[in-house]
Design a protein around this nucleic acid. Structure first.
Lengths: 347, 347
DNA sequence: CTCGGTTGGTATAACGTTTTACCATTCTTG
DNA sequence: CAAGAATGGTAAAACGTTATACCAACCGAG
């Protein structure tokens, strides 16, 4: 057996050494295995209250914290979940991240954040994240790219994998929100105000998210008219450009539904730049809520979806649900938040 | 020795098994140690090109990826860096995150994202992140709270730790940007336009970031006048409220410098809500750039700072710099981006 | 007393790597 | 042709956990 040093000294400089199970055991005068079993609350174990106390005390005094890697190795569980997003700066992702962190923190896990494009870029990044046993589950925020589905499918061969905000695949489950209903809700609001010529600014064409929101828009409009639909990408610049294109078509919409808040912000900028007053001449409503909606000018009317709850559920599903779960989170239903960017049409 | 199963079977369902070093060794007809040394490019090793080829081929065919936890255990290196932020939804943090990810990806590491408040909230979250040997270094985005410095100091006893965007402590190094110069640059711009009554909207009082930007503001103004200074918090609501307070003071500023883009957005909303036209009656300039600045209405004049580079450097420093590094990143200097939110004063 | 059961633990083998120390061969070379 | 040095590898011990199998001591009952 090893001699009783029992220290994990950091490589650099004068960092302190971390006590191991062996140190606790020595201090409590018991065996290593016993300490482990006590600390982990092994129910098959019968022990005197006295020794139990001694062990707990020793652990406390030494400030014992189990070594994650050793544990991960032994248990074949990493204690971490990976989350892949396309764009951290998107406030929508921020809320999902927070939800995921919440769920993880309460079950003692940590979050590993990765970038979709980096993983897609050929290198070893994907293998390092997925293959190395670093994570117990992978959440992939679908962006509508081919590599999204390809990589998620590949990951699912090794790990429990879940697509977030996206359509499920044959091999990979998913969790998403009531996007159609949210879009419907937004359009209803506009129609109740009296709007009839309503545009739709979507995100990346073909992406599940844009498709579903477009579907909701169509349902509420009761038409298949493409003249009012523009889909480009998910960033603000695209929202700006899409709004420009919609206006250039001469269809004269009196209102638009932007598929998310980032696009909505871009659309707002495009309208104002052309001297179109919002909401007097153009109403704008978006899906998702965030600080930037409330503090835009004019403050954006939005439909709030439970993004944070989705992040939470995603973690729970990927860790606890064995099969290929498929969930549309409906619990807090889409909620319309009326602000100043929508009003009855001028004429 | 163990029998030759050589498979790491996931706990759940029908996931595939992952090959280990032993499988590669068996297939190549060599010993485990040799495979390890070849795969890691051990320079002290002399081997026939032939066996080397066989080993590499076997690894490739089996799609071998080393097991992270095993490696972490053996090497006492986690291959990950922790980043603690206060608010993921802040676009500034987003850029830092991206920079950090860039640097990590290129050195084969991953990013673990944690929430400052969760770590501060008593539970075991802090120990799990810092004590478990999950990370090789910790980056802490200072928010000006007491627990920020307290926890960073505590972490530094176990791990290389670096404060980001914050003043260094006695025990903990830091990396930050030329915030004073950026603020000066912004104020200079306003003064060149002819403004004299210039307000300063800061973030959390006492936070290093707010202090340094305020210092730059004062340097450029050449005054200690407090009448134009309001500091509250870092979120948009605070920016909105702070702008409201500044206006309520009756000091009649013709321009304001908002300490960051989130505050600037809030300020913009507060001004417009009071019918104050920007930039005709009030110029607004902020520090940091992001999509929401370019697409605000009016588009915000900003001073761009190399946030992404800071994220990158932070990772490099925390991993490679042994001591207590202290860096003010000056390389791409602050850059003024003039947009439509600033103009000469009306009168 | 002796047999079986309970009580309260211990010893040991993994988990998958990396590394150190060692060892057969085969070449040189004096 | 023996001694030493290359050459090309192998065996085994860690790293810190957890789980399984075992075991000593004591107790009560037959």
């Amino acid at each position: 057996m090893a001699d009783g040093r029992g220290s994990r000294t950091g490589t650099s400089g004068g960092r302190g050494s971390t006590p191991g199970l062996a140190d606790v055991a020595r201090r409590a005068g018991v065996s290593v295995g016993l300490v482990s079993r006590i600390l982990n609350g092994d129910s098959t174990l019968r022990t005197r209250a006295e020794t139990r106390e001694q062990v707990l005390a020793a652990a406390r005094e030494l400030n014992y914290v189990p070594h994650g890697a050793a544990r991960a190795l032994r248990l074949a569980r990493a204690g971490a979940v990976g989350l892949v997003v396309h764009d951290v700066s998107n406030p929508i992702h921020a809320e999902i991240i927070e939800g995921a962190q919440e769920a993880l923190a309460s079950s003692g896990q940590v979050l590993l954040l990765a970038n979709a494009r980096e993983l897609a870029d050929g290198g070893r990044a994907f293998d390092r994240l997925v293959g190395e046993g670093r994570i117990d589950g992978l959440l992939w925020q679908g962006g509508g790219f081919d590599f999204d589905t390809a990589l998620a499918a590949r990951a699912s061969r090794t790990l429990p994998t879940l697509l977030v905000n996206s359509r499920p695949l044959a091999e990979v489950g998913s969790v998403r929100l009531q996007d159609e209903q949210a879009a419907e809700c937004a359009v209803e609001h506009l129609r109740e105000l009296g709007h009839e010529r309503i545009g739709f600014l979507g995100g990346r064409p073909g992406s599940d998210l844009s498709e579903r929101r477009k579907a909701g828009y169509r349902t509420a409009m009761g038409t298949e008219d493409e003249a009012f639909v523009v889909e480009q990408e998910w960033d603000a610049t695209a929202g700006y450009a899409a709004m420009g294109e919609l206006l250039a078509r001469g269809t004269q919409p009196t209102a638009v539904l932007a598929a998310n808040i980032v696009l909505g912000t871009g659309a707002l900028a495009a309208a104002r730049e052309r001297g179109i007053r919002v909401p007097e001449e153009l109403s704008v409503v978006t899906i998702h809520d965030a600080w930037s909606a409330a503090h835009a000018w004019p403050p954006l009317t939005t439909v709030r979806l439970p993004l944070r709850a989705m992040g939470r559920r995603a973690v729970e599903l990927v860790l606890d649900e064995p099969g290929r779960p498929e969930l549309v989170l409906a619990d807090p239903p889409p909620e319309l938040l009326v602000r100043a960017s929508t009003a009855p049409p001028a004429d």
